[in-house]
Design a protein around this nucleic acid. Structure first.
Lengths: 236, 236
DNA sequence: TTATTTAATTGTTACGGTACAATATAAAAT
DNA sequence: ATTTTATATTGTACCGTAACAATTAAATAA
């Protein structure tokens, strides 16, 4: 792990350990320089990382402060790690409805930037949280990136598999969503009345080199869906 | 405007002018250094800014590439400028239903970090896009930041007023949302059937010094609401 | 041709330094 | 007391340098 990453992790851990709240002041730059025995620019880089992650904000002439933590139970749309096994203490489980290799839809081929003739992995899952249905998820994986998948990998975290087993780095994702009424099939899987409200999301994940490898369409149970985003103002 | 901001703006403009697409390669760092006659770290800073904004991504050993533009008609949740007058060519207008000074709700007081006894500005608006209802918006403004508001300011952009007239800098915002069914009142204002799907959003805007100044609750017309987010993977 | 190794390209980390701008604090003036 | 002015604090911009790591391209070997 690089110096600035380690320092960022240490500072973040300290915020948790000391249970610092929104607006609480952290030590000044010079203090961090002394504490970690690195140059000013390395500290600055660590703090910029924490700022991007929404952990702190910096005010020139004043100091470095803790930013608001998200409310409990909300899904952060910027963490970009797919689903984890847990969310604020709630267990997340998943049931695999389909796992096969097939021709992508035109839409999937476009978003994965693959030839429509070239077959891809297709996975359909239902996820549960706290005993309730959370969402239905249909994912297409670029086979030239994710060359092998099985039931075990899919029911665990695919993202961990890609990072750890394949040694690939997930870089960024684009996310589109809108709201509508779910259809009969979706209603059945989500155990909701037909035409209930639903959140429809499309997400395209890319490696750090820009290659898209995962195109997912997710339909959320509106009763279980609470989301969180932190935005920064990067105006020019 | 600072050097690195100007350079970022220039590069962004060039991407637009040359109509560069996802994956297209930009000149290398050394070329930018020569073009703008600045040091490497200034170019890096400009590119990091463009990366945060989701305009480009950088790959070590390979180059700097254009990132996907959002699809047309989607509202970007990270731009953080409130509503503009226009979205992808569609006119956005707004009708002011209420504008007064009152005691904040407990919720508003908490989110604005003001004393519940201390009165705040309250604004209720309906926004329209392309002749359709877009959303209902109830906003609370901290009076110690936004000391004066009138009908004209409110029906134009409050954010421009805060930036330009008051000389304040908007720093970051926290955004929460969930999906549900709209009630009778909301249905009427949005010109939708009762119990239609709706997206319910809460957003808290902060100045660069961390002070919250705007707490807004927005109910979106599900037929007009398409959203876009770009996420980056800042893992430690 | 295909695979492997080597070299060149290209962005990233980390250092050091100087000057500066925004804020906060202390001192002085009203 | 209140406002104004000076001073100290604190993060930001920009420069330059060196070494490094990931990728790509070229050269070599199988």
């Amino acid at each position: 792990m690089l110096k600035y990453q380690q320092i960022a992790a240490d500072i973040e851990q300290e915020i948790v350990d000391k249970d610092l709240q929104q607006g609480d002041k952290l030590p000044v730059l010079d203090a961090f320089m002394a504490q970690f025995d690195v140059s000013k620019s390395t500290i600055t880089k660590a703090l910029d990382l924490l700022e991007k992650k929404g952990i702190v904000y910096q005010v020139r002439g004043s100091g470095i402060f803790v930013r608001r933590h998200k409310r409990r139970g909300y899904i952060s749309l910027l963490s970009n790690q797919g689903f984890k096994k847990e969310l604020d203490g709630f267990q997340i489980t998943s049931e695999v409805l389909a796992l096969d290799i097939r021709r992508p839809t035109a839409e999937a081929a476009r978003n994965l930037a693959v030839n429509p003739e070239e077959s891809v992995y297709y996975v359909k899952r239902v996820r549960y949280i706290n005993g309730q249905t959370l969402c239905i998820e249909e994912s297409y994986y670029n086979k030239s990136v994710v060359s092998y998948l099985n039931n075990e990998i899919v029911s665990e975290s695919i993202f961990n598999y890609i990072s750890d087993a394949l040694g690939l780095n997930i870089g960024f994702s684009d996310l589109y969503f809108n709201v509508g009424k779910i259809n009969k099939k979706e209603a059945e899987l989500l155990r909701l009345p037909d035409a209930s409200p639903g959140l429809f999301m499309e997400q395209i994940f890319h490696l750090t080199n820009g290659q898209p490898f995962d195109f997912s369409k997710i339909t959320y149970n509106y009763e279980q869906s609470q989301f969180f985003i932190q935005a920064n103002n990067y105006f020019l």
